[in-house]
């Protein structure tokens, strides 16, 4: 009998594996010198992220209890912060189902860190400092820009994303030569914004420099605070892009447990409407917020994508020893 065709070899070169090791060492050095504590939190948890656009992996214990693989270490790290850890960072694997492509692998490496006392602008500064020294060649002064979310759409898609209604957003995608299936043509404003972001705006961000996008609309706040003193209210959230690739997502963290519970419940409602699984709410996180999360900002940075950008490779498989197809 002939054995099945197997691909046992790694997809990353030895040079890239060495670059990965070197980069992780420099990240640890960076945080060590700034007295940020390295921590580890469980990859398997009884609760999970409720984000309707995110599908968790889960598994069963021997006694039949369902546990979820973390889609990010956020909830557990916030519990550490509430318990008085001070500034912390973690380098760990995160897991998201159905995410596979040029910049996605269902299992990937995240660097996540939290800074008590920082707002999201201060954290952007620190992200810039860290990424700046990891890039090859290192970032030059003026190698970075800050761009409001609304302005990014105006500049790169020629549309005001706050004023435009659904048909305006739809027309804008057509003008950019993007053809979609009928199922996108409903009154889903957020869907059109996501479409314009991924197809038109994002590919133009971070060309030759770092682009930090900030002042997201309140509808895209996720777990960030919302600033109600401006009109319209904006989310205190940022993202980092380099060469059209999204590298990091950060929040001035929501600390209000009641609002957090409300957002979880909204997510669950959406999930239930869409017929998606309903993971249990993370009551541990909510209790920690109730106890008191210090005012802080946190950010997650994709290490695999960073390695792609440093090495000039074009597919995530080239920086992974074994991507999911060979795992």
């Amino acid at each position: 009998m002939t054995p099945p065709l197997v691909h046992w070899q790694p997809t990353a070169s030895l040079q890239i594996l060495q670059l990965r090791a070197r980069t992780l060492a420099r990240i640890r050095q960076f945080f060590d010198s700034r007295k940020v504590l390295e921590v580890e939190t469980p990859l398997l948890s009884a609760a999970a992220n409720t984000d309707p656009q995110l599908e968790n992996f889960s598994t069963l214990t021997g006694s039949g209890k369902r546990l979820y693989l973390n889609s990010s270490p956020e909830f557990a790290m916030k519990r550490l912060l509430a318990a008085g850890s001070g500034p912390i960072y973690q380098i760990c694997k995160a897991f998201r189902q159905e995410e596979s492509g040029r910049c996605h692998n269902p299992e990937f490496t995240l660097l996540e860190w939290y800074r008590p006392g920082f707002d999201h602008h201060q954290l952007m500064d620190e992200v810039e400092q860290l990424v700046g020294i990891l890039l090859d060649p290192p970032l030059t002064p003026n190698g970075s820009e800050r761009l409001a979310w609304r302005e990014a759409f105006q500049r790169h898609a020629n549309i005001d994303p706050i004023r435009a209604d659904c048909s305006g957003l739809m027309k804008c995608t057509r003008n950019h030569g993007i053809s979609t299936t009928d199922r996108l043509a409903d009154g889903d404003r957020e869907g059109w914004l996501d479409l314009l972001m991924t197809h038109v705006v994002q590919p133009r961000l971070g060309r030759g420099r770092l682009t930090f996008l900030f002042d997201y609309p309140a509808s895209q706040a996720a777990l960030s605070r919302i600033d109600h003193t401006v009109d319209p209210p904006t989310a205190e959230r940022f993202e980092l892009f380099l060469e059209g690739i999204e590298l990091a997502n950060g929040f001035h963290e929501l600390t209000d447990s009641k609002e957090q519970r409300q957002r979880f419940l909204q997510d669950r409602q959406q999930r239930s409407k869409a017929g998606l699984p309903l993971p249990p709410l993370d009551e541990n996180l909510l209790a920690a917020l109730e106890h008191g999360l210090p005012d802080c900002s946190g950010v997650a940075l994709g290490i695999d994508r960073l390695l792609m950008l440093i090495s000039g490779t074009t597919h995530i498989d080239q920086v992974l020893s074994f991507p999911s197809a060979r795992a």
Partner: peptide, 25 residues
């Protein structure tokens, strides 16, 4: 496969119409 940081994921596909040979996105 493309996906914003938070939000809807999409598949951006190029296809060839097998009758006309035309490439469609």
């Amino acid at each position: 496969f493309v996906k914003p940081g938070k939000g809807q994921a999409f598949n951006r596909v190029k296809l060839r119409n097998l009758k006309t040979g035309r490439v469609i996105e």
